[in-house]
Design a protein around this nucleic acid. Structure first.
Lengths: 217, 217
DNA sequence: TGAATGAGCCCCAAATCAGGTCTAGTTTGC
DNA sequence: GCAAACTAGACCTGATTTGGGGCTCATTCA
């Protein structure tokens, strides 16, 4: 189903909750941590759901964890350096829009993985390792009956790339409204067939403009 | 899971197979039909899978069916007037990237439905009716625990819109290679954070250039 | 040492997916 | 009129995934 999972949705919120409390490098509370219990309270979600999600992010290096009494989590990077693509990768695994994309992307996984991850600028060692292990798993997706003669492969791969880029272009700071969207940015999107080349550069596309909440990078 | 279903994938192929045989208005074999059995043979798929998919498209007006001996299907419109979004809608239902999009889009479903469908230029009565009936179903998606206080709604909606536009911008003629992609169009896509405003207008974004296979629109 | 945390692993029911079956209706050709 | 070849309609089954949890162990601090 062509849908972001509830867990991923929750994850965005949870990470945003941490970000909004400034618990990240350069943030207003960069040396503090936020417990899973506290985050669950804010999200009005069961603690085990929250804890399990947060654990995954700690494991992949998106979050840093502090164990023991007064333990908790903080972001490993600035929210503007964590993209939606990164978040989705942790929760849902490698994004593959359609099987034949995985097939082709397996051969090119080096360049794709480095592209989507480098732009996130997180602890790339962790997720790059994940992408490398997905290489083997990716082969399992090569089971579409049409794969050897499907004329849709090239266009589908293009769509996949574009969607990937969209996800990589939006970052946690906008997602949790640390850097709010200008509402005119939404209104300015024409509902037409060929918007991509004509739409103005969205506010949430990173322009390397420092967030007012942070010290310079 | 953020994935196009196998059935949708097969559907693209099947519709493409019909298109490649010219069985559409203005096509080289516009008065002929292609049987489900024949299409299944070409696709090397079980006939029941194929038949069920094709039925859905006939029901929604994407295909015209001819019953009885020598019956079969032909496209109701030219392949360039049938978008990937249209196809996905039939197979998977209304595209909703994430619950809060459905919530908000329910109120605005009039403008969205007319937008994505008008650009497809198919028998809009059919799919518009589907969109209207989805209005009620859409309310069922309003069950995300975070919905009332989630700061991600606006950015997520923007991503949803963009993905929708991508799907609406690619049409069956390119998908089935009646109008092949220029391979440089793929190579020219930079793997960067902010590609949308800088990428060249893709070949498959309709430029109202008549396909050499068809008479003028 | 006990309390409050994270880490690791697992469970279960519901929903969805993928692939199919069967019957009824329609049309044509003999 | 009947049989064959098709579509139309509705449904089924097993596999997989999703969503929401639970429990125990390890770590840290007061």
């Amino acid at each position: 189903m062509l849908r972001i999972s509830k867990k991923a949705d929750y994850a965005v919120f949870l990470l945003g909750a941490i970000a909004r409390q400034g618990a990240f490098p350069g943030g207003s509370a960069e040396d503090t941590v936020v417990s899973a219990h506290e985050i669950a309270r804010q999200a009005k979600l069961n603690k085990s759901v929250v804890a399990n999600l947060l654990k995954g992010f700690a494991k992949q290096g998106v979050l840093e964890s502090v164990r023991g009494l007064r333990g908790g989590y903080r972001l490993a990077k600035h929210p503007r350096d964590i993209s939606l693509a990164d978040i989705l990768e942790v929760v849902e695994g490698r994004f593959v829009l359609v099987d034949c994309v995985a097939h082709d992307s397996t051969r090119a996984s080096g360049s794709i993985a480095s592209g989507s991850i480098a732009s996130g600028s997180i602890a790339s060692g962790h997720l790059l390792g994940l992408a490398a292990s997905m290489k083997a798993v990716g082969d399992k997706h090569d089971d579409c009956a049409l794969i050897s003669f499907c004329p849709s492969k090239a266009p589908m791969r293009l769509v996949h790339e574009r969607v990937s880029q969209l996800f990589a272009a939006i970052h946690l700071d906008e997602l949790c409204s640390l850097s709010p969207l200008a509402s005119s940015a939404i209104a300015s999107i024409p509902i037409a067939s060929t918007p991509t080349a004509t739409s103005p550069k969205p506010r949430w596309a990173r322009a390397n403009k420092p967030s007012p909440l942070t010290s310079p990078r």
